[in-house]
């Protein structure tokens, strides 16, 4: 699904310009809800501890990136677009404009050259190629378009985990087993996913849909409370327990191991029970907007 290079036509289009700005803001400005969570954590760690040093540096970095309009982290990650369009809207046009905007954003340095052929090792140099960027399209019955963008770095993506229950050490096919699996993921990750982390979790689905839905949970804002009271409670408990583990920011030791946990569920086959966990680093770059049918920004989200 490689898009045609349509720079002459499209570099002028409003859709292209809007998406380019979305990419710039996503790469350089952490959303407010995440900034609040980081700042709240800064108050929790003991002054002078390594955990406090780490969180202070992170706080400084958030400010510097925003002021200088430079990437928060040099790993600008997997480029994930989540799009809702009205019935009858041309999704291919949006995909082409977004792909062009990704090329331009790479040229401008908002995105690092991050797309590598998995066999030859060759970098395409513009962040496009099979599987890059990633698009999740859905239709809806609203009259406008919604685009959400998430950049997920490689360091934290490597810490994702998928468990199949029952598991000899972690337990059976119930919420206890799920809880133990999630906490095991936190233990194994230690500081390697650039914690404090935010977890997106899917209970159920198959191995593919499970991971995809786990990532989608990360579209919920940090303060969003799960509609399902059982899952809401589990989300809270996971954060509490993880923060008693002592892993702390960067794995230096400390009280802030997770900033949040968002859990969703999908139906499963009777034969399988997967728990899929997407580990997101503190550099949780997620932004979005609604667009009119001409591609002009109506509202910024997050």
């Amino acid at each position: 699904m490689t898009a045609q290079p349509l720079h002459e036509v499209r570099s002028q289009s409003q859709l292209f310009e809007s998406i380019l700005e979305l990419i710039r803001r996503t790469s350089t400005q952490l959303p407010d809800d995440v900034v609040h969570a980081v700042n709240a954590a800064r108050g929790v760690e003991k002054e002078g501890s390594n955990a406090a040093v780490a969180l202070n540096v992170i706080g400084c970095n958030i400010g510097l990136a925003r002021e200088s309009s430079l990437p928060l982290c040099q790993d600008t990650g997997t480029i994930l677009f989540f799009v809702h369009t009205p019935v009858g809207y041309d999704q291919l046009e949006l995909e082409e404009a977004a792909t062009d905007a990704v090329r331009e954003a790479t040229r401008k340095g908002y995105l690092r050259q991050n797309s590598v052929d998995s066999v030859t090792g060759k970098n395409t140099g513009d962040n496009t190629g099979p599987g890059s960027p990633v698009f999740h399209f859905e239709q809806w019955r609203e009259p406008h378009v919604e685009v959400k963008l998430m950049l997920k770095g490689g360091g934290c993506e490597n810490m994702n985990a998928q468990y199949s229950l029952p598991h000899p050490d972690l337990g059976g096919r119930d919420l206890k087993g799920v809880e133990n699996a999630i906490l095991d993921c936190v233990l194994q990750a230690q500081g390697q996913g650039c914690g404090p982390g935010i977890l997106g979790v899917c209970i159920g689905g198959d191995r593919g849909t499970g991971y995809a839905f786990a990532k989608e949970q990360l579209l919920r804002t940090m303060d969003n409370v799960n509609d399902d009271p059982q899952l809401a409670e589990l989300e809270e408990r996971i954060v509490q327990k993880a923060n008693q583990s002592g892993i702390g920011p960067m794995g230096f030791g400390g009280k802030t191991t997770l900033l949040g946990c968002k859990i969703g569920k999908l139906n499963r086959l009777p034969a399988s029970f997967f728990v899929s966990i997407a580990y997101m680093c503190w550099a949780f770059r997620r932004r979005g907007f609604t667009l009119d049918l001409q591609g002009a920004v109506m509202n910024w989200l997050y």
């Binding site: 327990k241 583990s245 002592g246």
Partner: peptide, 19 residues
């Protein structure tokens, strides 16, 4: 190694927090 220390300690703590 701080990494080794934190891993061992967190493993111990989380084992007591198991559901």
């Amino acid at each position: 190694s701080l990494h080794k220390q934190v891993f061992e300690e967190s493993k111990e703590r989380l084992s007591h927090l198991k559901a």
